[in-house]
Design a protein around this nucleic acid. Structure first.
Lengths: 228, 228, 228, 228
DNA sequence: GATGAATGAGGCTTCATTCAT
DNA sequence: CATGAATGAAGCCTCATTCAT
């Protein structure tokens, strides 16, 4: 309560301000850290035990906090899941956006995006793939609405990239919904390939080859839809 | 199962047998009917309310039987879901098999399969699509193991068809896993397109056009993977 | 709390003392003010949301202080309620005492008390009526003991007034407990009339007329009990 | 499962029907009995420990059933309280109605009603008085709405009785709301007298005398309001 | 004095499953 | 075979209170 030797007026003030901002910052940092600790614990358990089997108590234990603290940082269990899929969706979009931006609008961007997904995202975030593709569907209307929103965004990104490519190359698509169908298809391929080779069968070492075939498949499909 | 006392005469015996077999048959029929009634009620509720929200009591009410009866026909709630996805998987495989068998091993079979899925299965079984694609993932290890088994079979069917086509046409695939990757990809496309245009956005009237684009995409993809 | 460097002179000292007492007074005032701010916030929320629904956090938010501060000024949540009903009881007693003292011991005092309650207290303190009559009963033994004490005091005041009137007018009561019964009855009438016309049905504009009838009723009752 | 010797056709049918109806009736009876057992256990605990302190587990224990059974018979804890106050309100109305009907519309009916409340209801149902007057106020909006409805009915009954008396005796009331105010007042007196002499101070042996004074008070009040 | 993050006991409620009738 | 009342474990969540800063 009592600080050391009395500092001069202005200095004291400055010091004080500095102290305040320091402690405030530290608080902020620790808050953020705790938030992530909890989210991480939840992710591990959702992926490992399944969303339903993972109880709030288990999550609290793993995060080394009390149950009450969980509810200080998150509204409820559903919120935990929503934050997770939000974060994963964000990561996924960034990954794809980076791939698309590496090149001029061309199929090369699509290829890079596929490689990013299969060779970067999947092997490095298997837990997140599990949550995104296996644990989050069909859990509640609210979660489902978030999933829908996120998928729509990712699909929209891919669709935009395809549209840009089409315009850039002067290749029209077969039907008005073609770009959308392709984007949805690509998303579906990514999803089920991850599910198949990562979640169900642990064949992650084949993912590189699988991804290449998948990308070839996609490029062939796009090409075909540009023909007529 | 338990026969009565030894009958005296052939006539009597015949008579008896006839009676027994009649009532036994009726029993059998009613049993089967009830089984289906319950399964149907469960399907409606799983799709409408979600697997978890649908309680055994609700299912019993809708099927107009008692809760106890549910447990006579099904081992437990999980069993209900497993039977459903089993049935759906069976239906799906038949659908695809029929398409593949309509033609000589050729891409036409693939096209027909796509049309069968998008223009027959989806619009006529939206409830089943919901159960198969949204409600059954991530519910329990056992259910997941059944899902895996069923998906593997469907994927295997497609893969076999693709392999047959490859052999028949003398077109080798890019890599050893190519046929499998394509099968998995096709499954993923089907799944997410159904999810997107049927479950999330009710654009089922567009499904025909969407399906055509998807099939074109697939054929282009296959073609591409046969090149080199 | 932290004084600067030691002052040189008496004047300074005097000055200092003055300063100290000034700041001490200001402290005192601010303390009092904050106490009331919190109590007021609690009153609003207890009346508006109900004692249980109103959480300490909500109260802190409304009073624009932190939760910790609540516990500096009040022992606990129960304490908040007790202080409130104490204050309300105090106000009520003053109100009645003022009415009784306006006149010589006579029924006129009773009339004025009724008017004070129905035409002053009720319309001007509906929130307090809600707390006193609806939110405080049955919350905890301790709160209940305070309620009992307060009611006893108010009833005692009325009883004393009635006794004085009886002695002054030389009219004995029917039984030894008559004065007490009348006081309790009057209190009950006040309570339920407020509950009925103020809390349950918003007919506060009729309260004047209602109050007059109530007072007439009371006077008739008192008169009757003095007969024999 | 197997009944004794095979009865003749009609007899069997009759027997069967009889058996069915017997067991159905017994079921019904036992259901009703359990319902009451639980309600009784809840009443004891609500009165003894207070509504909030009495947990569902405690109630289940006292009723010697499982917690789940509580929820088979009652929707939730609130429902338990509502059923109780409903039942008490019903009992109270019957009590008063019986008193009013014993005599021609006259003040004697009011007197009998008072006696019924103070000399019958209070001493024989102290627990119910506690629930009705102390534990049920301010618990939740829904409970409060039921309280309001019940009080309104009881007050309405008294008001009707007073109106009938007024008409029968040709004595008009001071103001249009007089009958209502009197009814509300009487209810308030009953309530607070019960609270004072039964719940707070255990002076139930004085209740007879207290009740007499209260009735005298009421009659005087009514009389006064008929004058002008 | 003030803050607000952390606690954790305890409450209510749900629901799959069982079993006597 | 069918019924449906009973079970009880387990889950989510609230919130008054504390205490280090």
């Amino acid at each position: 309560m009592k600080s050391g030797p009395a500092p001069l007026e202005k200095e004291a003030s400055a010091n004080n301000r500095k102290n305040l901002s320091r402690s405030a910052l530290r608080r902020q940092r620790e808050r953020e850290k705790r938030f992530q600790t909890i989210l991480h614990a939840a992710a591990e358990l959702f992926a490992g035990e399944g969303y339903h089997k993972a109880s709030m108590e288990m999550i609290a234990d793993r995060a080394e906090v009390s149950v009450g603290t969980l509810y200080f940082y998150f509204k409820n269990k559903e919120d935990l899941l929503i934050r997770l899929i939000d974060e994963i969706g964000y990561q996924l979009r960034n990954l794809l956006a980076a791939a698309f931006q590496k090149e001029d609008p061309s199929l090369e961007g699509i290829r890079l995006a596929g490689i990013a997904f299969f060779e970067d995202f999947c092997p490095n975030n298997p837990e997140r793939a599990v949550i995104f593709f296996r644990e989050s569907p069909g859990q509640s209307p609210l979660v489902e609405s978030y999933r829908k929103k996120i998928f729509n965004k990712v699909i929209g990104d891919v669709q935009d990239a395809l549209t840009r490519i089409g315009k850039y190359q002067g290749t029209p698509y077969q039907s008005p919904v073609s770009a959308e169908v392709m984007a949805v298809s690509i998303m579906g391929m990514f999803e089920r390939i991850a599910y198949h080779y990562l979640i169900w069968h642990d064949r992650s070492e084949e993912l590189k080859m699988v991804g290449e075939d998948a990308v070839t498949f996609i490029l062939g499909g796009i090409d075909q839809l540009c023909r007529k």
